[in-house]
């Protein structure tokens, strides 16, 4: 199980703005371990899904070129203060994480 996602969910007028930070190595697979000279295998988040009231409101597909501890922000309509946003990710090794936050 991956680490929990840090989420900030904020209503700005009628726009629901979500910012998220996901603790993850995002290892691209090009680097060699200086100690062993072995190639460090790629390990990165491939999919992120955001749900609001059972609707998928945002999906991110990522390659290894998204920075370590990825940040993403997105916005959508039709939410209100007190609503819940659910974020899930999964990575190329089958690991995953899910966290929810409430709009302020």
């Amino acid at each position: 199980m991956g680490k929990p996602i840090k989420i900030r969910a904020k209503m700005k007028g009628d726009i629901a703005e979500v910012k998220a930070l996901m603790p993850h190595e995002m290892e691209a697979g090009f680097r060699r371990d200086p100690a062993t000279n072995e190639r460090v295998p790629a390990h990165y988040i491939t999919d992120v899904v955001a749900e609001h009231n059972g609707d998928v409101v945002f999906t991110a597909y990522w390659g290894p070129a998204v920075s370590k501890n990825p940040f993403v922000s997105f916005s959508f309509l039709g939410a209100a203060v007190g609503d819940t946003i659910n974020l899930h990710w999964k990575d190329n090794k089958g690991d995953s994480s899910a966290t929810e936050a409430v709009f302020k």
Partner: peptide, 11 residues
């Protein structure tokens, strides 16, 4: 700094 990676370490 808007959503800095060090927040993970602080937590």
């Amino acid at each position: 700094e808007d959503f800095p990676p060090y927040e993970i370490a602080v937590e």
